[in-house]
Amino acid sequence: MRTIARSMTVTLLGVLVSLACAADPVAVTDPAAADADFKFQGEYAGVLKVDGDEQKWGAQVIALGDGKFHVVGYEGGLPGAGWNELDRREADGQLRGATVTINADDTTLTLQNGQILVTDQAGANLGTLTKVVRKSPTLGAKPPQGAIVLFDGTTADHFEPGQRSDDGLLIEGATSKQKFGNFSCHLEFCLPYMPAARGQGRSNSGCYYQGRYEVQMLDSFGLEGKDNECGGIYSIAAPRINMCLPPLAWQTYDVDFTTAVFDQDKKVKNARITIRHNGVVIHRDLELPGVTAGNLLPENAEPGPIHLQDHGNPVRYRNIWVVPK
């Protein structure tokens, strides 16, 4: 009887473990391995007729898994490309066959073949938004004279532990061996496609400048842009505008950092930071009153490293260089 009970317990535990593993959201790092929803996700832009007038509009289509989608519309154009930074229209949709249909207030959006057809309740055509693929203007930026190249794809020896993926990218959980005071830094990162994940479990990492101040990396595509989302600085400041691109798009952070000033053990000036996310300023000369959670080092006068957080998701990095000042 004990043997049977023990066997049943082992079997039950095995089933529970299998279910737990099956429930873990899949992280896709190669577009070729993505699901059928992936081709619909992304950014769209065009002109729509609104109350008889033609207006520029942008839309971000977010895949949520199992054929479900969330769409955010932006009057004036996409974030950083015309949006008035005031009006967001949101709605949900479902994939049926080869088409995603979204009912939004008094309009219907039909996604197919890289376009969104917008019609009113009577079926009249209000316009079409076409899929666009934006790239950061600083993508591929070459290190200037005097720059210290931390990662160019050839070696990860400038980081600890310093691991490269099979396709020559830097793997998360790396800390630069060199430490910095005042500096400018360029890095490029790619967030995995995790449509079934939500919140902080959706493609999470972060860059800790000086190992003290984290700028969040997260699949925040289409979200409001909070201090715990992409470009945010935890508990200190949300980005001025959410410039997060869709997952699997390469993105950039360009940072100018001024270290805190100490008189012996007393801090007399806070650190300051300016951040450009995909070429757009999201924090300008922001004062950092203290370290953020998960910091490697306490706040003091000593220089610190560039730390790329391992939060359990396969975020990848390339083209990282620093110009000391």
Rank of each mutant, 00 (worst) to 15 (best):
M1K: 12
T3A: 15
S18D: 10
S18I: 14
A27I: 10
D35G: 11
E43M: 02
A45N: 01
L48M: 01
K49H: 07
V50W: 03
D53P: 04
Q55D: 03
W57V: 00
A63M: 08
L64I: 09
L64E: 14
G65N: 05
G65H: 05
V72N: 02
G73W: 04
Y74M: 00
Y74F: 14
D87H: 13
E90T: 11
D92E: 14
G93E: 01
T99K: 13
T99F: 08
T99M: 11
T101E: 08
T101M: 09
A104V: 12
T107R: 13
T110H: 03
Q112N: 10
Q115K: 05
I116W: 00
L117F: 04
L117Q: 05
D120V: 13
Q121I: 12
Q121C: 12
N125L: 15
T130N: 00
K131H: 01
R134H: 09
R134F: 10
L139Q: 05
K142R: 13
P144L: 02
A156Q: 04
H158D: 10
Q163S: 11
L169M: 14
T175D: 11
S176E: 05
K179C: 10
F183V: 02
L187S: 02
L191V: 11
A197K: 01
S203K: 00
S205D: 03
E214F: 04
M217K: 02
D219M: 02
K226A: 14
C230D: 06
Y234N: 12
S235F: 15
R240S: 11
R240C: 07
I241T: 11
N242V: 06
P246T: 04
P246L: 05
W250K: 05
T252G: 01
Y253L: 09
V255G: 07
D256N: 14
T258P: 09
F262M: 10
Q264E: 12
Q264D: 13
K267I: 08
K269V: 09
A271T: 05
G279N: 09
V280R: 04
V281E: 03
V281T: 11
V281G: 04
I282A: 00
D285S: 04
D285E: 11
E287V: 09
G294S: 08
G294N: 05
P298C: 03
P298E: 09
N300Y: 11
A301Y: 07
G304Q: 03
P305V: 06
L308R: 06
H311W: 12
V315F: 08
V322H: 00
